[in-house]
Computed example of a mutant assay.
Amino acid sequence: MKLISTLGLASALSLSGLAFQATANAAIMAGQIQPIAVYNDFNGAFGLAYDSQNNLMWYTQGDSGDSLVHSFKAYKDFTAAELALLPVVGGVKQISRSAAQESQFTTNPGGSGPFGSPGAHFASLAFDKATGQLVQQGPGTVLRAYDPITAANQVANFRPGSAVADFSDGLDVDGTNTWHSPDVGSIFKNGTLFASNSDSTKTLLPGWAGLGSPSGLGWSGVEQVDNSLFAIAVHSNADTGRSRTLVRFDLTTGDLVGFDPDGDPVAARWEDLAFDNEFLYAADLRGNANGNNIPGDVYVFKVTGGLDPNPEKVPEPASTLGLLAIGALGATSAFKRKNNQN
């Protein structure tokens, strides 16, 4: 009888070991993600942020755009009736400037942005919930904060040391975390390296079907969602489709855990990311969302598949093995108690 108990314990430990091994060897998940809507005619959208205080999306412009910060209606706020009126091209809802209430509010932060450009021109953008302020990149390695709509109460040096380069494609402020992604470079968290573009474990996308090498050049937009960090992986510097794609990192481990295997066939140059607590947005500096060469589109994604930060809880092999191990240990313990009573 003791032999059976020992075998039961050995089996439990063996199953537990298998569970650990299965977890440790988990592969990066690829999950198709398609845009569900796109905002058109935004004239070189570059920086993006969701303002939860005023329930507005904000964006900055690049290329030939202006120095203001423009607002528009978040996709989550469109009613069913409004959505039904939107034209659909290739399964993607098309949102015009009028439907988006684009620039109903604008902010003129003044001063200089990246490279000494005026105001918020070519500035990545974020929103700080704690202060209710927009945060932008520039000038230089300085982050600047100000009130939405009025641009009042300016903070000339927001969270010193959080930005590490003169120009960035991605910026996000989430609680105490400040995420910064220099132009097609590495990703930094609070001024410290989080993901290096020279680390193949962070950049290599197995089975990449887009343009360029499976190992990316670096990243542009960054956006924290719960315990995940979304980023735009850049695989070539081309202004053509499938040169960039969405990826997801685990905040705790820093591991690359999910990616869209082929990007989008018509996306041109995704830059900054934003999240409105329901949908993920990407600013496309030189967009071509509906095939008519309309620049400055903002893409809207419903994050699913391997990119889902909170996938539906389905027992995986590792979890199943772990449960079996616990069950075996429990059975062994119960058997020993019964045997002792006898």
Rank of each mutant, 00 (worst) to 15 (best):
V234K: 15
Q137N: 06
A325I: 08
V184H: 09
S14E: 06
T131A: 13
T240F: 10
R242L: 06
I33H: 03
A99S: 14
L85I: 14
D41T: 13
F42H: 12
L229M: 06
D262S: 11
A289T: 02
N293E: 14
P317E: 00
F230N: 08
I33A: 12
G111C: 09
D239K: 11
P182N: 14
I36G: 06
V222N: 05
Y39V: 06
G8L: 07
A22R: 15
D166P: 04
L3A: 10
T178F: 15
L217Y: 12
T252H: 13
N339L: 14
G44I: 03
E271Y: 04
L204H: 09
A27P: 05
T106F: 03
S181Q: 05
H70A: 01
G191M: 09
V314K: 12
A163F: 12
A26E: 15
F127C: 00
F279I: 09
I149N: 02
F301G: 08
F115S: 13
S228N: 03
M1H: 08
M29F: 06
N310H: 05
N25T: 06
Y75V: 13
T203S: 15
P309N: 14
L125P: 08
N342F: 11
N342P: 00
D260T: 10
D260G: 09
K76S: 09
T252M: 06
V92Y: 01
V303R: 11
S228F: 10
Y39A: 12
S243G: 14
F72A: 14
G218T: 04
F335G: 00
G327K: 09
L324R: 01
N55R: 02
L13T: 11
N227C: 01
P139Y: 08
D284S: 08
A26M: 15
H70I: 00
V298S: 09
L18W: 07
F301S: 03
D41Q: 14
A233L: 07
A22G: 03
A12I: 01
S117C: 10
A30S: 11
T332D: 01
K129W: 00
T141V: 05
L324N: 00
G91M: 01
G47C: 01
N43Y: 15
M29Q: 11
A81L: 09
V135I: 12
L13A: 04
A282G: 01
Y59I: 02
P118I: 03
P206L: 04
Q154P: 04
L86S: 03
A282E: 07
G44A: 03
T253P: 05
L83F: 05
Q21P: 06
D174R: 07
G111K: 15
A126W: 08
D183Y: 15
A130I: 00
S112A: 08
G110F: 12
L193C: 02
N25H: 04
I33S: 11
P315I: 01
L256T: 00
G254P: 06
A325C: 06
H235Y: 04
L211G: 13
G175M: 11
F301Q: 11
G170F: 10
G291P: 02
A328G: 03
L285C: 00
G62L: 09
F259M: 00
K338R: 13
F167I: 04
A99Y: 02
D226I: 08
G296W: 07
R286I: 02
I95C: 09
A195Y: 10
Y50P: 11
Q137K: 15
G17I: 02
A123R: 03
V298R: 01
N25F: 05
V247K: 13
T201S: 08
A145R: 01
T107N: 05
A152L: 12
T253S: 12
N54A: 12
M29S: 10
